[in-house]
Structure formats: structure tokens, C-alpha cells
């Protein structure tokens, strides 16, 4: 464990907590893409499937973190699609999730380190996570604005994988550990946030709201 991965995981936890708080406090999921949250839930379940296969005692933080990620993302989907369904902005959350799931699944079958079920599920989860934020970014571009709290959520969510890139550089240098598939997907994922990061740093930090040119 290194400082980059530690802060990456903390940033990821913060993102999940910020979103849950936003929906719970405002009792509304306006401006939140339900599809992105569904895709994240699928990522966690397919990536941590080993938790369900051979049960291991929750002796270490990694297992606990995995369970937190899975339960928090499923709970977020519950809030969006059931509890606060009336506030779900289905019209603007219109990116076709199939256009993300099918290519990720196909690519996972073509490019992977080992052709076995668990490894393909893990690879699928990595590819899907790289593009899972697209429906959320698409929704913001359609509505033309993002609530400040939602911007903080996106900033934390984007920072988590950016910090993981630093973690991979660190591990390459000090542990000569390389996981090419995760690195390439992580770089793509972080690049997708670039224009949002620019808007966030130039606007939200100064207290302005993000409003995209209509």
C-alpha cells in the first residue's frame, strides 16, 4: 500500500459518500445519472465476485472495503430507482448504456491476461469502469449545468483513478509491478474527466456553478 493508492481509495470512498449524502439530504437525485450508478454497481459486483464465491472471513480491510463499495453502490441505485424515483431525470439520462456494456464485454473476451471466467469478469469490470462515467457527463451536457455538490462528487470520483495512476507509477518504479490492462483503462478513464476537471478548477473552486455553454 502506498500513499497514492491510500488517497485514491479515500477519494473513491468520499465520492460515494458525497453522492449518498446529496441524494439523502436533498431527497432528490436530480442531476444524477442512474445509469452511471448502475454501471458502477455492475463494476463492483463483477470485480469482487470472489467475495461471493469462496467466502473469506472479513479479517482485512480490503474485504471490508469491497463490501462497502458493493453495498453503497447498490443502495445508491435503490435510492435513485426506487425511493426517490420521482426525482430521477430519466429524460436527460438518455445515453444508451448498452453501447458501453457490450463493447466492454467484447473487449474483455478479446484482450485479457487469462481466458477464464473470473479473469474475464475482472477485465470487463475494468473496461466498464473506464467508461461508466459517460452517462453522467452526458446528462450534465444535456442539462447544461451541474449542482455544486454533484461537481464535488465528480471531482472525487475522477481524482480516485488519477491517484491510482500515480500509484501505478510508484509500483512500477519500486515494486516493478505492472498491470497493463488496469493502467491503460485507468488512463482512458482519467482523460474522460479532463474537461470536467478544467471546469471544476476554474469555476467551482471560485464558488461559481458549472454551467456549460448551451
Amino acid at each position: 500500500m502506498n500513499i497514492f493508492r491510500l488517497f485514491g481509495d479515500l477519494s473513491h470512498l468520499a465520492a460515494i459518500a458525497i453522492l449518498l449524502l446529496k441524494i439523502w439530504k436533498t431527497r432528490s437525485c436530480a442531476g444524477v445519472s442512474g445509469k452511471t450508478q448502475l454501471l458502477f454497481a455492475v463494476c463492483f459486483i463483477t470485480r469482487y465476485i470472489d467475495l461471493f464465491l469462496h467466502f473469506v472471513s472479513l479479517y482485512n480491510t480490503e474485504k471490508v472495503m469491497k463490501l462497502i463499495y458493493i453495498s453503497a453502490s447498490v443502495f445508491t441505485c435503490y435510492l435513485i430507482f426506487f425511493k426517490f424515483k420521482a426525482t430521477y431525470d430519466g429524460n436527460h439520462d438518455s445515453m444508451r448504456a448498452e453501447f458501453l456494456i457490450v463493447p466492454a464485454a467484447g473487449l474483455a473476451c478479446l484482450i485479457n491476461t487469462k481466458f477464464d471466467a473470473i479473469e474475464i469478469l475482472w477485465t470487463f469490470s475494468i473496461y466498464l469502469e473506464a467508461v461508466a462515467i459517460l452517462p453522467q457527463l452526458f446528462l450534465i451536457s444535456k442539462t447544461g449545468e451541474a449542482e455544486t455538490i454533484t461537481s464535488h462528487y465528480l471531482f472525487a470520483q475522477g481524482s480516485y483513478r488519477a491517484l491510482y495512476i500515480l500509484n501505478w507509477i510508484y509500483r512500477y518504479h519500486y515494486e516493478s509491478h505492472v498491470d497493463t490492462i488496469a493502467i491503460v483503462a485507468g488512463v482512458v478513464q482519467t482523460i474522460l474527466y479532463c474537461d470536467f476537471f478544467y471546469l471544476y478548477i476554474t469555476k467551482v473552486v471560485k464558488g461559481q456553478k458549472i454551467v456549460l455553454p448551451a
Binding site: R5, D50, H54, V56, W122, Y164, A182
Partner: peptide, 10 residues
């Protein structure tokens, strides 16, 4: 006996 844990990150 879990196979050698290749992916040790979240």
C-alpha cells in the same frame, strides 16, 4: 486455496 492473487488492488 485461492489462486495466486494477481489483482491486489480495489
Amino acid at each position: 486455496l485461492s489462486p495466486f492473487k494477481k489483482h491486489d488492488e480495489l
